[in-house]
């Protein structure tokens, strides 16, 4: 069994994962934040695309469960020498990996690796497709804050088209009962949202007064995010979470951002440091969610 997407996962399973993550948050709060559950298991981080925070988070989660961790990054590796994805994956399996955490610029790479190796795979981000543990850590952060997601009104703002985070969150949030509005200029909206249970608009100011959550996406220069609108100042003027916009949100509304933040673009300094900006809660919850996922996939006979 692998964890490749939040799409189509039954609500009961998502909630069970969040419940388990709650327990792992309690484990992480102990004086000795470590349990022996995955002793002797080997978790391989296969990062074919750069990421520091996600890899560190998975590494922390695996170690807190007493698993061993092996890190592979594409830069300077056999992949740079032309080894195929399949050969790399089979090599990592032959080295004894019990589970692989995979990030790749190509959508579907984690699923291929799961099929080739027969090992459980956690998708840590594949192209513009999915980043399911991000979706779950964001859901956990909202559940902690509001007690549940039922009826929450969430605006996901920014580069939806290039965002696997948006895709993961749309399906996790809506399955858990939230309503989601995608807010972006036309050029950053997905080509099609057919089958997505969401609304879409290009007018952030029009929805500010009626949302509980503003989820800001990072403008991803590396995925062409800069080429589809005229200029950064224009983006900021219409979609940046400025202090002025923040003050127009309902009093209990919160702001999330998956990081790394482009301060002054998606989010102003004054907002990023505000107690209702939950960015660091998201980071902390990421460890607990990843522990829950690793334990679910490795803490049993399958």
């Amino acid at each position: 069994m692998s964890f490749l997407t939040t799409r189509g996962v039954p609500r009961k399973d998502l909630e069970e994962l969040l419940d388990s993550a709650d327990e792992f948050n309690r484990v992480l709060a102990r004086p000795i934040p470590k349990v022996p559950a995955l002793q002797g298991k080997l978790v391989a981080n296969l990062f074919f695309e750069d990421s520091t925070r996600t890899r560190l988070s998975f590494e922390r989660a695996a170690r807190a469960l007493s698993a061993d961790v092996m890190n592979f990054s594409a830069a300077g590796s056999s992949a740079a020498k032309g080894e195929s994805l399949k050969d790399t994956a089979l090599t990592i399996r032959a080295l004894g990996a019990d589970l692989m955490v995979v990030r790749h610029k190509a959508a579907g790479a984690p699923r291929r690796i799961a099929a080739w190796t027969g090992r459980p795979v956690v998708n840590a981000g594949d192209g513009a497709h999915q980043h399911p543990t991000q979706g779950m850590l964001d859901a956990l952060t909202l559940r902690q804050r509001f007690g549940g997601l039922d009826g929450l009104r969430v605006a996901i703002v920014g580069d939806i088209r290039h965002s696997r985070v948006a895709r993961s969150n749309v399906f996790a949030f809506t399955a858990l009962g939230a309503g989601v509005t995608l807010v972006a200029p036309r050029t950053l909206q997905p080509v099609s949202t057919g089958g997505w249970p969401v609304d879409a608009t290009d007018d952030l100011d029009g929805v500010l007064g009626e949302v509980d959550v503003v989820y800001l996406l990072r403008i991803q220069a590396e995925r062409g995010g800069l080429s589809v609108f005229p200029s950064l100042p224009e983006y900021v003027s219409r979609y940046g979470m400025t202090r002025d916009r923040f003050d127009r949100l309902p009093a209990e509304a919160v702001v999330l951002h998956p990081g790394p933040m482009n301060r002054g673009v998606e989010i102003d300094d004054a907002v990023a440091g505000h107690p209702r900006a939950l960015v660091l809660d998201q980071v902390a919850n990421g460890v607990a969610v990843r522990m829950a996922v690793l334990f679910r996939l490795l803490g049993g006979s399958g």
């Binding site: 069970e16 419940d19 388990s20 327990e23 792992f24 559950a37 995955l38 334990f295 679910r296 996939l297 803490g299 049993g300 006979s301 399958g302």
Partner: peptide
């Protein structure tokens, strides 16, 4: 753990 199905944590 390796010989039984994964159980949710209580």
């Amino acid at each position: 753990l390796a010989s039984r199905p994964a159980m949710p944590l209580a």
